[in-house]
Design a protein around this nucleic acid. Structure first.
Lengths: 131, 131
DNA sequence: ATAAGGGTTCTAGTTACTGGAAGGTCAAGG
DNA sequence: CCTTGACCTTCCAGTAACTAGAACCCTTAT
């Protein structure tokens, strides 16, 4: 199976697959005689793992850790859970921040006429007017 | 007022101020005889505006637009509001995505013992086990 | 005179890819 | 047999918004 098929199979672009190889997230693929990368069922599995992990917001570095734990039959599940809990904390923080921003902007936008007139509470706020 | 003071005053690092100048977000600062950048009260105001806008999650490109509207006395407030509403939509999307991820990860983490044993529902999920 | 603590420019690194150029390979059709 | 189109290869550059660091200049106080 060459890279295009692997890509179609997993939803990871060929560009990304090559990139992952270049940064050693995945081992160098086998090559056909003509130099085409060849992917086994196991490689596809790994790409699925990566795709799913990235989709859950893990950084590539975290995915590398998760993959290494995945491959280690003697891993401690606590390590995996630790990574996830840390990530969850970051997500919570991010959500909190975004919600706070949303509230602020919602208020500002609601107070702005949004028409042809120049008067604008949003700009007043950004400029530091204390309302 | 030179760059260090301007930075302390506004909370924008000197590095960032120079960077903003380099990308033309702010005009080139005046210079002292020895070549030091000099900032006026109006420059400080602008830096405050940028700081606040970036803090609300606007991209530098959006800040450039907002700044240009801010400086235009004949702006239409609708344009400003448009930018904000677009940004709000993106924020809502982001929050939704993060909440979905959070739910998934919370479930997985709760089902993982998180001890020395290798058994791990998180890895099972990432590997594509259909549970 | 010198030392500390400013300031200057320039290059390179960060994250996770994506786009594009230049060129080799493979299978099908004329 | 040759060509065409869809693959594949490598390598370089660009993206966002800075940050780190090197090498060097300026100012002020001791």
């Amino acid at each position: 199976m060459n890279i295009g098929e692997a890509s179609a199979e997993t939803g990871v672009t060929a560009k990304s697959i090559r990139y992952y190889e270049s940064i050693d997230l995945i081992p160098p693929a086998e090559r056909s005689e003509s130099g085409y990368r060849q992917y086994s069922a196991r490689d596809i599995q790994t790409l699925h793992f990566i795709k799913r992990s990235r989709g859950l917001g893990f950084s590539v570095a975290e995915v590398a850790e998760l993959l290494s734990l995945y491959r280690d039959r003697k891993r401690a599940s606590g390590e995996v859970k630790g990574i996830v809990e840390t990530h969850l904390d970051e997500i919570d923080q991010k959500i909190t921040e975004l919600e706070s921003i949303r509230t602020t902007l919602r208020n500002l936008a609601d107070r702005c006429h949004g028409d042809d007139r120049p008067d604008c509470p949003i700009l007043d706020d950004l400029a530091g007017a204390l309302d």
